[in-house]
Simulated scan of single mutants.
Amino acid sequence: MIDTKGRSLELFYIDGHPDGMITAELFNWTGHVFVTPRTRLSEALRRQEAGYAGVYLLLGEKEGQDFAYIGEAEDLRTRLKQHAAASDKDWWETAVLISASANRLNKAHVKYLESRLIGMAREIGHTPLHNGNCPSLPGLTEADVAKMEAFLGNLMVVLPAIRVDMFIQRSRPAGSSGPVLSVDGVMAGTASTAPEVTRFVLNKPRAELTAKAVVQNGEFIVEAGSHARSEWLEEGSKVSTYKSLHDELVRSGVLKASGAHRVFTKDYVFSGPSAAASVVSGHSESGPRAWKLESNPNISFGEWQARQLETLPEDDISE
Rank of each mutant, 00 (worst) to 15 (best):
residue 174 A to N: 07
residue 176 S to T: 04
residue 147 K to R: 13
residue 161 A to D: 07
residue 160 P to S: 08
residue 191 A to C: 06
residue 228 A to V: 00
residue 206 R to M: 13
residue 200 F to R: 09
residue 233 L to M: 15
residue 194 A to F: 08
residue 229 R to K: 11
residue 142 E to R: 15
residue 227 H to W: 02
residue 223 E to G: 02
residue 154 N to K: 07
residue 170 R to W: 10
residue 203 N to W: 03
residue 225 G to C: 09
residue 240 S to H: 01
residue 191 A to G: 10
residue 197 V to Q: 02
residue 200 F to C: 02
residue 197 V to A: 03
residue 242 Y to F: 12
residue 216 Q to E: 14
residue 157 V to L: 15
residue 193 T to I: 11
residue 181 L to F: 13
residue 192 S to C: 03
residue 180 V to M: 15
residue 222 V to Y: 00
residue 172 R to M: 15
residue 149 E to T: 04
residue 195 P to M: 01
residue 167 F to P: 00
residue 168 I to S: 11
residue 212 K to I: 10
residue 240 S to F: 02
residue 164 V to A: 04
residue 186 V to K: 04
residue 136 S to N: 10
residue 224 A to E: 03
residue 243 K to R: 13
residue 191 A to R: 12
residue 148 M to I: 11
residue 192 S to L: 05
residue 137 L to D: 08
residue 138 P to N: 14
residue 192 S to T: 07
residue 209 L to F: 00
residue 141 T to W: 04
residue 234 E to D: 10
residue 223 E to A: 02
residue 236 G to Q: 02
residue 219 E to G: 13
residue 244 S to Q: 14
residue 145 V to Q: 04
residue 221 I to N: 00
residue 196 E to N: 14
residue 162 I to Q: 11
residue 210 T to S: 15
residue 163 R to D: 09
residue 146 A to H: 13
residue 186 V to N: 04
residue 242 Y to D: 15
residue 214 V to G: 03
residue 175 G to D: 05
residue 233 L to I: 12
residue 243 K to E: 01
residue 205 P to K: 01
